[in-house]
Design a protein around this nucleic acid. Structure first.
Lengths: 252, 252
DNA sequence: TATTTTTTCTTTCTATCGGAAGCATTTTAT
DNA sequence: ATAAAATGCTTCCGATAGAAAGAAAAAATA
């Protein structure tokens, strides 16, 4: 087994279970515990794990961007479910706006059979997922190319987005908190998402259940600013009443 | 066994298993490990593999459609040759503009080792071919997405291009004729290419030998408007003197 | 609570293996 | 015949993993 395989296996174990134990991993991979610790050191340096006494836990510090490949693999079922729910609100002829998130990607797949959609996005992945030979009109923002997320960022994105008005937009975030509102990792993400919200009649916030009661680095805005929240599990009563009192529709 | 056979076998093994091990492959093909590493180097440069200590793993974020669209093209060798010639004019720190052509794609590959390049393009394929982890700044026009060519078109492309000035731009065309100038298939291609020419200090026209004395649908402009023509075979004396009398540099 | 014991962690050292680069030789293509 | 590509060899360097010793943290015990 290659060292990189071991490291990746540890990472996926970590993402699935939320924690790993040094002694278990050493037995499983038949290496010394020092070797496992070195793997965990690397994962920690990459911001993916947090070492603890006896093992490591998933990094709940949401200020770091996961690699695209890892991000795409976490809670795939939940994201697909959310995409299905969002798709129910998209009809033939709609003008929609999708951000560079995994949920947006799944949403495109879900609505592949719709007609006459006009789609605006800053995500290349979304473009590459488009149905073939459809009658859609697709506009991409352009801007500074961010290779790690296959999307565009920067001033240009905002000014293009501001030129359009759409029926519905789907945005995601890294954390959702009653006091801090919803938050994301990077300034440029936040600025872009604010522009998205300005341009859309109805804003759908796609958040899987793991994002609740978490805060990340940059504050986007108050939760009341979005029109609907779509998630994959029934939120707590507290959150439900919070959404209701802020006039935010809730779908799950 | 031919080298290319070995490389392809390694690739299919990689795709099937997700990884390969240098020492195993060396034994299996009865060559030294250095040879295997060189094969893996090539696969890595093609973006198909990711080398690691002891072997290589599959590159997860790869677009398998790319080789297909390239293979569909005619005279691939000639276009590679042209790209090499163009690359000789691109240095560290340059600002360049690439259109959505196969030649542009090969040009990016040729200049992968340059530093501090600022690249402006309307081609998604070019974006996907960018070297990983480089220090380039890459700006994409955005605009209406043309699925068949994985590029952007429309008014937005022009207005973005007009905002920038670059040292060098590479454009292609479908036909080259002394009377009709150079021509292309579609209106939107022509408009975009004109914008490209406005924004560049030096315009390189990339045309393989099959394009000479051909005319296509939309006239772009006179041949004298470009600064240099790059092709893959020595043109006729007639063409050579025509270029000379129009102050167009010629590289082949 | 204070002390001891156990477990885990960090650091350092070392052996081994894999990899990069340069050079020489063979093979292939033009 | 010549140039270009492919291959193998050698040397040097860096990565990996294990071992050992001391430090630190947690657990157990008095």
């Amino acid at each position: 087994m290659l060292p990189i395989e071991r490291k990746n296996t540890i990472l996926s174990r970590l993402m699935a279970d939320g924690k790993v134990i040094v002694s278990d991993l050493a037995l499983e991979f038949d290496v010394t515990e020092e070797t496992i610790r070195r793997d965990l050191d690397k994962l920690e340096k990459e911001g993916l794990a947090k070492k603890t006494y006896g093992g490591a836990v998933k990094n709940e510090n949401l200020n770091t961007e996961l690699p695209l490949t890892v991000r795409k693999q976490t809670n795939v079922e939940g994201k697909k479910y959310i995409a299905e729910k969002i798709a129910e609100h998209i009809s033939d002829g709609d003008y929609i706006l999708l951000d560079a998130s995994t949920t947006a990607l799944f949403t495109v797949k879900e609505i592949a059979d719709r007609h006459n959609i006009t789609l605006l996005t800053n995500s290349i992945e979304v473009l590459l997922e488009l149905p073939q030979n459809s009658d859609w009109r697709v506009i991409c923002t352009g801007g500074e190319f961010v290779q790690s997320s296959l999307s565009f960022a920067g001033r240009q994105v905002e000014s293009i987005i501001d030129e359009y008005n759409v029926d519905l937009c789907v945005i995601s975030c890294k954390g959702l908190d009653m006091e801090k509102g919803f938050t994301d990792t990077r300034d440029y993400n936040a600025t872009i998402k604010k522009a998205f919200m300005r341009s859309a009649k109805k804003v759908f916030l796609a958040v899987d259940n793991t994002k609740f009661d978490k805060t990340s680095f940059v504050r986007l805005t108050n939760i009341g600013e979005v029109d609907a929240v779509v998630t994959d599990k029934e939120p707590s009563e507290e959150w439900k009443s919070y959404f209701a009192s802020n006039n935010v529709e809730l779908y799950y």
